[in-house]
Write a protein that binds this DNA or RNA. Structure first.
Lengths: 335, 335
DNA sequence: CTTTTATTTTGAATCGTTTTCAAGAAAATA
DNA sequence: TATTTTCTTGAAAACGATTCAAAATAAAAG
């Protein structure tokens, strides 16, 4: 592959001049400019990113972390993000965390050696201080998940509102004993608004119960449920132990499918004997054997906003976008 | 961020010695080695990839191209690929081509300036010669799609066999007028085995018809159908023009869903009045309102094989793995 | 025409590594 | 002990770009 010196030689000029035309810097005559451009074209010259980076040029690489890409919600998110950032000349590096702190750290660490200019975190595995620490090495934006303590550009949905409304709807439909399943490891409930996705969802849920003067049996809280299979297992456990609630709020559409599948197998009617609420509104959710009632997350919008926030923050560290989208309930037939 | 010289200074040694311990080269005493390691730990030193690359070290980056990641088939593929390559210390760069030649070229071009060591192509947009050309700059492996003329490591499924069997099954079920929809732009039918996914599928389809002494109406061939929406549109067109076949082989599960959705809306019974065959066997396909009969692609296996083929080829350019998996029909209720 | 000023062009230093080469120290051989 | 061989170490030259300061050239002013 040709180097900048090859170009210079062919053009009969110095490397500095060539560099200047590459970078569109002033102080180069029309004449020489065309000379250089011709030489570059002829040799098929492309500057080597590694060499430029060494001199301090931005890498134009960004990392995106997701728990796992096979969850269509995250695939959709990545899709928009990749599209809009690619159009601005950025290359994106995909990192699946599988919920592991170390994987997320790997991504963050890429900031320190200038491999990437920024990271978009679609989930959060590490604690606030450690993430914040890395923000001095590059731009970090949060999308979907969020942490109140983090002073970073954040694009999120109003989980509190969404879950309050959805739960209210369940109550209105007459469900009395509502179970709550989530993919997260634990739920830290805080009074403060905007703390994190997880607790905001749960407190929205509780707020609705409270308003209806209903109480929640802590035994009906299930964590670590994040796949179709886990949903199926949860249903079977409930069924076997004879502790069936009359509705379940599941942490994702995938989980909801697992639950409905379990119900079908043993003949528990949905939504009559068991209401099942999904979260996400994946594209196939409306085509399921029981079209899913679910809380729609505005993925496209959130992804686009996240990409934009990243671009802005790369441009100017002082603008920390903070956007929150409303969630809406898509009523179909599972509730 | 600390540099190698900082480490050297702190350890009271030269950069060369530090470099030697970083790269586990011989000729450094136990004593100094521990000294260096201590200094590295204390400073939290990490070698800068850009600088190493400049000196010719491999980047340990790989690109993966897919038409679009929102298709679960490709998401699954990427998932396995990322997992296995990540475990070997490779970082993966995601590139969505959306069927565009230039996007694929962008990926290939990353090879020339050593940004990446190799590319895994999950689809093929450019012509064989242009792709082959880039193989001199790094490793290229094909997975899923393939091109007979390309002399590259290739992991694929036996589309001919799969489609012949699936079509045979349709015929056996009594379907007589079978339409064929594909996401591809055109179908070049060649007699030669192993030419490309597209034509192999189609010739498998035709072989089955031939054996049954049935003929195919070229008007029943539809290209450019690759989304749920396109499937729906296709159905509506067929319905409106009163040209409804009695079965449709669709290029993907997504398309099949669109078709079945259209059928449901106007009351065309599936599978009684219209058989619908999907391809892929996405995870939700069994949970649809009509569980889909589909040709299962062994995604996990193919992805893993592709990653392995890449690793081997990076190691030794002479080993060009060429693996073909069998496809099997998953019979559910749409046919 | 000089002299001054502004513009274009170049040479050389630099970024953080790896690697070659030579020098010095230690070990092995005679 | 003198000599050769083997190990350790460090100084300096790359790698391919950018950039600063200085030199060369052109334009403007006197």
């Amino acid at each position: 592959m040709p180097t900048i010196s090859d170009v210079a030689r062919k053009a009969g000029l110095s490397v500095s001049t060539v560099s200047r035309v590459i970078n569109k810097k002033p102080h180069v005559s029309q004449q020489k400019e065309t000379l250089v451009k011709a030489a570059m074209k002829e040799l098929g010259y492309k500057p080597m990113p590694a060499a430029r980076q060494l001199r301090g040029t931005k890498a134009k690489n960004l990392a995106v972390t997701v728990p796992r890409i096979t969850n269509p919600f995250f695939a959709d998110l990545i899709n928009v993000i990749e599209r809009t950032l690619d159009s601005k000349g950025y290359t994106i590096i995909l990192i699946q965390t599988f919920g592991r702190k170390d994987k997320e750290l790997d991504a963050l660490k890429l900031l320190t050696n200038q491999t990437i200019d920024g990271v978009i975190l679609c989930s959060i595995e590490n604690d606030a201080p450690v993430i914040q620490e890395y923000s001095k090495y590059g731009s970090i934006v949060l999308v979907n998940e969020y942490l109140g303590e983090l002073d970073l550009p954040t694009i999120r949905a109003n989980q509190y509102q969404g879950f309050k409304e959805a739960t209210g709807f369940l109550i209105q439909r007459g469900y009395k004993n509502i179970a709550y399943a989530t993919g997260h490891k634990n739920i830290i409930v805080t009074k403060k608004e905007g703390t994190n996705l997880n607790s905001n969802r749960f407190s929205g849920f509780q707020a609705a119960l409270r308003e209806a003067k209903m109480s929640f049996d802590p035994k009906m809280l299930f964590t670590h449920v994040q796949t179709r299979d886990a949903g199926l297992k949860l249903f079977n456990k409930l069924f076997k132990e004879n502790k069936m609630p009359d509705a379940i709020i599941s942490g994702s559409d995938e989980v909801a499918v697992g639950i409905m599948e379990g119900a079908k197998e043993v003949g528990v009617e949905v939504p009559k004997r068991l209401g099942v609420l999904g979260i996400d509104d994946q594209s196939l959710s409306r085509d399921l054997f029981i079209p899913l009632t679910t809380v729609r997350q505005p993925v496209e919008e959130m992804g686009a906003a996240a990409a934009k926030a990243m671009l802005q923050h790369l441009e100017d560290k002082d603008v920390v976008e903070n956007k929150v989208f409303n969630l809406d309930l898509v009523v179909r037939e599972s509730v």
